[in-house]
Computed example of a mutant assay.
Amino acid sequence: MKSLSRWISPLILGVVMFNTIRLVTDLPSHNPFWSNSVPFHLLALFVSVLMSYAFDFYARYYMKRVRAKNISVMLEYTLLLVYLFFAVNLILYLGDNIGILFLGDKIADYVIADVVCILYFFLYYIIIRNDKLEKEYNQQSLQMEKIKVDQLEIELKFLRAQYHPHFLFNALNTVYFQIDEKNKVPRHTLEMLSDLLRYQLYGGNKKVPIQKEIDYLKTYMNFQRLRMSERLVLNVRISEDLKEQEIYPLLFLPLIENAFKYVGGDYHIDLDMSCEKGKILFSLFNSKPLDAEIKSHRKGIGLENLRRRLLLLYPDKHSLDLQEQPDHFVAKLMIETESV
């Protein structure tokens, strides 16, 4: 239905606009409506309809351009009126000289055509512009409602699970004190595990200094190394410029989890993290087993959750690039942020 209206509207505009010009021209002169040659009027009507379709396409293109440039509404309308003035008069001049339009009283006919055409085209532009804005507003409203529903679901899940972290930390604390003080390695492992869990469970959804996130990632990688083969080569390069920038927590963790999960072959993991012009650049490389039967595909819940969080927390301010090769995998994440 909307598609049909999209194509009929310019036709109606052209017919109404032409007949308005005829009414304004014929009635004050006491001439019959559509006086003189009917075929000639039909030809002029066809030109009016053709102009309307052309303007419809141009108006939608023009709307995208001015909105992309983020100019003011006043300037948007002013530029449109200037365009309409030159375009309408050019068509009238060419039509008159070619012979498909008849402008008897040059000045009066030009003025009438200018006023009617420019007014109708301008009103038509306002209508389609408002229709576009209304559709976008409705889409944004639906998106906001969906986000609110998602947040409520997450909050309910968090409240249901709130008891379990307390039980877990109490259990870890019990195990910690049951280990002899001389066994420093398992005690240290439990401490690292407790720190990791505490950050994940109580970090919340508020921004944290990037240094705090980096400390967490280092603890996580040290914890993972405890269970990895001694052949693992882990190279971590983190720029010293990353200190006070604020970022939402746990956005890099899913990529590091996958790197440790799927590492094989040469057992090589390279992590680079830097800051450039207000952007945090994160790059992660891990070698893979050459066995063709081992396929990671990396389409698990962790990555889908990461994509969803990035979309909600950094709309149009991030990029995530995943590149999988037979012997290695590369993940690149860019997040636009600001220094505090």
Rank of each mutant, 00 (worst) to 15 (best):
Y124M: 04
L75V: 09
L79Q: 01
N170P: 04
I147Y: 12
V149F: 14
M63F: 07
M51A: 10
H166P: 05
L92Y: 07
F40E: 13
A161H: 15
Y93H: 12
Y61R: 07
Y83V: 02
K132C: 14
V149M: 13
W34H: 03
K132V: 13
S52A: 11
Y83K: 00
A113C: 10
D150I: 08
Y137P: 11
S72M: 04
I127R: 07
N89R: 06
K69N: 15
K69L: 12
Y110F: 12
K148R: 14
R65I: 13
F40K: 03
K146H: 09
H164M: 08
Y62S: 03
L133R: 13
A108C: 07
P165F: 00
A171D: 09
Y110E: 03
L79M: 01
V47L: 02
C117G: 04
C117F: 07
A108E: 10
K64F: 09
R129D: 10
A108R: 13
Y110Q: 12
N97H: 15
G95Q: 02
T78M: 08
E153F: 10
L156A: 04
N130L: 12
R160T: 14
L168D: 10
F46N: 02
F40V: 02
S52E: 04
N70Y: 06
D131Q: 09
L43E: 11
Y53E: 11
Y120K: 00
V149H: 12
E76Q: 09
E145C: 00
F57E: 04
D109C: 03
L101H: 09
I127G: 12
K157T: 12
I127A: 14
I71A: 07
I128Q: 09
I100W: 15
T78C: 11
Q140A: 09
Y53M: 02
F121D: 00
L90H: 01
F121Y: 08
W34L: 07
F57Y: 10
I98N: 01
A108N: 07
L79E: 02
H164R: 13
E155A: 13
P165T: 03
F121L: 04
Y53A: 06
R129K: 15
V116W: 02
L101M: 09
K148C: 05
Y62G: 01
I126D: 08
V66A: 03
V49R: 04
Q139M: 07
A59L: 00
L168F: 14
F158K: 10
L75G: 03
N130I: 12
V66Y: 01
A68E: 09
M74I: 12
E153N: 10
L101S: 03
H41W: 13
Y77C: 00
G99R: 11
L50G: 15
I128C: 05
F86P: 01
F102M: 06
Y120L: 11
F169E: 06
I71R: 01
F40D: 13
E136H: 06
Q140G: 01
I128A: 01
E155M: 02
F167M: 07
Y83R: 00
F40W: 13
D105K: 04
